[in-house]
Design a protein around this nucleic acid. Structure first.
Length: 603
RNA sequence: GGACCCGUGGUGUAGCCUGGCCUAACACGCGUCCCUGUCAAGGACGAGAUCGCCGGUCCGAAUCCGGUCGGGUCCGCCA
């Protein structure tokens, strides 16, 4: 039988079907068992006699064959889409088991804190509410595309690596690019403008990177930028109107396609007036002054409280939760922004503010080559560094402008999320790239810390050991000399990659590893020595000073059987100038290594 | 970079201010048993935390103080 989706069971009443999906919850009534089965299309209740139900719990992947039945009148559940029917199971097969979930997934709300939400991203994404966030995001991005395609815009793929920082201010990530420095793109701005000279109207959906050393609820280091740019405009209001068309299109699409998702969050789309109001920055500041007495009339930029206040004003006076602010001081915006003819102190750039924060930024750009060149110089930018960009202008550029939305921000503010990280499937910020960086092994002055870690570990285990201070040593022989031990007593710790996983191999100081034997003995296909850099990264310790405690660095530990010939062993304690001597038996007891035979005489 | 707040079983929280009835509470989850109509199932019983870590004050610390590590919020920054 062919698998069908939960949503397609609705018109299969009385028919035999095969469903596959995850067990969401299981309600056991003794002889009868209810299982809520979910797949990508929805949730359905399965009823089964307990005799045919295998061991099952939330998270299990199952295939269930049975008959779709109408539920008795009094057992209809209006809360779920398939509430009028259920699947009477005939056969339940477990496709994959699941560990017990670390938190409750069966509840309408996922009650976890942000770090837990992100640490278990693979799991939390299964929750309907979390799911809904990314459904909305998909519609945001898709409708952005459609809105522009309808206006004759061409999509292009913006590069992620850029040669130079074209503008000061924003912090960018530097990357090692072969023998040169390059940067991760913080905006496709220059590329999209350049493309106007060949395609007239372009847009892109791409990742942008910002190395701002800040942790806020509305910034992430990697974001999805929705960019558009087009030529042959008469003035900047045409750019604004296009942006207005796009955002209205996007909001309308979300309203139509995400009814359920919005409902889950109790979210409503922002009110938008027939025409989104537009005010100049100075006007906005005047309004704020009159409403609150806060005098920011000379500020170059609205602060977060100003943005919230102007949204309140717009909401109350103009019946619009979205508002454009235009005409920022020319000097505070990038070199390519078009100064206003009437008052060149201010420019034809604008932001779209919604629900108290910036949703979009855009403006008209300078298209005249000579003007652009002189602006670049005034802004302290070397024209050489933006020669590719200038090229488009040198050979004929129509008047142009454009704008950019942040997909995560829009998602966040439509749904009323409090932290933008919730609106990014895999958010990157200063402290996190999938996992908290602080929990990862890292470089730095780890010499002492690996040393201290080791001592802590030994002290906690409450075993006897001797600590030696000595001049720095770098070879097993030297070490044996300064410690007054025999070379074979030295426990030499080598870091290797076995089938790409770091492992630690320990053997007597006078012997070397026989890689062939090691492979054969431990059943690895591929073994190679870690480079000194890799060792430092993995252990925080220089080669030669690595203590034979693989467990401290979360590596599997393999010990050469010949080491057991020593009553006591000695090794460097994470520093070249510190050694530890301890009983072999204690070492084995503490580290519980795998023991094997893989040494060879030093030639 | 600045200010403030938080760290208690697997998860989410109470307790802290006003130290001792804390042998640490509650909800969910988990385990065993009961249950043929539940749908956030229900019932009975049970396991699970030396209260982030280190130090100090005190007869006595989850509770007060200092340090440290981790987390969060607001502000700055965000061309």
């Amino acid at each position: 039988m062919k698998r069908i989706l939960v949503q397609d069971t609705l018109d299969k009443i009385g028919k035999e079907v095969l469903l596959k999906g995850w067990v969401n919850t299981r309600r056991d009534h003794g002889k009868i068992v209810f299982i809520d089965l979910v797949d990508r299309s929805g949730l359905i209740q399965v009823v089964a006699q307990s005799t045919i139900v295998p061991e099952l719990a939330a998270g299990f992947v199952v295939a269930i064959e049975g008959t779709v039945r109408n539920r008795p009148e009094n057992m209809i559940n209006p809360k779920i889409e398939t509430g009028k029917i259920e699947l009477e199971a005939r056969k339940i097969e477990v496709i994959a088991k699941s560990e017990v979930y670390p938190f409750d997934m069966g509840k309408p709300d996922l009650e976890v804190e942000l770090p837990t939400l992100l640490d278990y991203r693979g799991l939390t994404l299964r929750h309907p509410k979390v799911h809904a966030i990314f459904k909305v995001q998909e519609v945001v991005i898709d409708s952005f595309r459609r809105s522009l395609q309808e206006k004759g815009f061409v999509e292009f793929q913006a590069p992620g690596i850029i040669p130079a920082i074209p503008e000061g201010g924003t912090e960018v990530f530097e990357v090692q690019y072969f023998d040169h420095k390059a940067y991760l793109s913080q905006s496709p701005q220059l590329y999209k403008s350049l493309l106007v000279s060949s395609f007239e109207r372009v847009f892109s959906v791409n990742q942008i990177y910002r190395a701002e050393p800040s942790v806020t609820t509305r910034h992430i280091a990697e974001a999805t930028s929705l960019d558009a740019e087009f030529g042959f405009i008469e003035d900047w209001t045409e750019v604004r109107d296009m942006a207005e068309y796009v955002i209205k299109y996007v909001l309308r699409s979300v309203g139509e396609k995400c009814v359920k998702e919005l409902e889950l969050f109790g979210a409503t789309l922002p009110k938008v007036a027939e025409r989104i109001p537009t005010i100049k920055l100075r006007e906005a500041q005047q309004i704020i002054y009159e409403r609150t007495g806060r005098d920011h009339r000379q500020e170059k930029d609205p602060d977060p409280e100003d943005e919230r206040e102007i949204c309140r004003w717009s909401s109350e006076e103009k019946d619009s939760e979205l508002v454009f602010i235009s005409h920022y001081p020319t000097k505070t915006r990038p070199f390519y922004t078009y100064p206003d003819e009437a008052d060149p102190e201010y420019n034809q750039g604008f932001d779209l503010i919604g629900r108290g924060v910036e949703w979009m930024t855009g403006g008209r750009r300078i298209h005249d080559y000579e003007t652009l060149l002189s602006h670049a110089k005034q802004w302290g930018i070397d024209p050489e560094k933006i020669s590719l960009y200038l090229q488009g202008f040198k050979y004929g550029m129509p008047p142009l402008g454009g704008f950019a939305f942040g997909a995560e921000r829009i998602t966040m503010h439509i749904l009323g999320l409090t932290n933008i990280r919730e609106a990014s499937v895999f958010p990157r910020d200063m402290e996190r790239v999938d996992l908290r960086l602080s929990t990862q092994a890292n470089g730095g002055d780890e010499d002492s810390s690996a040393f201290e870690q080791l001592l802590d570990f030994l002290n906690q285990a409450a075993i006897d050991y001797q600590l030696f201070e000595h001049k720095p040593v770098f070879t097993s022989e030297e070490a044996a000399k300064v410690r007054g031990t025999k070379p074979e007593q030295g426990a030499k710790a080598l870091v290797m990659y076995a089938d790409r996983n770091p492992i630690m191999v320990v053997l007597p100081g006078n012997l070397k590893v026989d890689v062939k034997q090691l492979k054969a003995d431990l059943g690895f296909k591929d073994i190679k020595m870690a480079t000194p850099e890799e060792v430092r990264k993995l252990t925080g310790v220089e080669i030669g000073a690595v203590p034979p405690f693989g467990n401290l660095f979360k590596m599997s530990l393999y010990v050469e059987s010949k080491l057991s010939a020593n009553y006591e062993i000695a090794f460097n304690a994470g520093r070249h100038d510190r050694s530890i001597k301890m009983k072999y038996a204690d070492f084995i007891k503490l580290t519980k290594p795998q023991i094997g035979s893989f040494s060879a005489q030093v030639a």
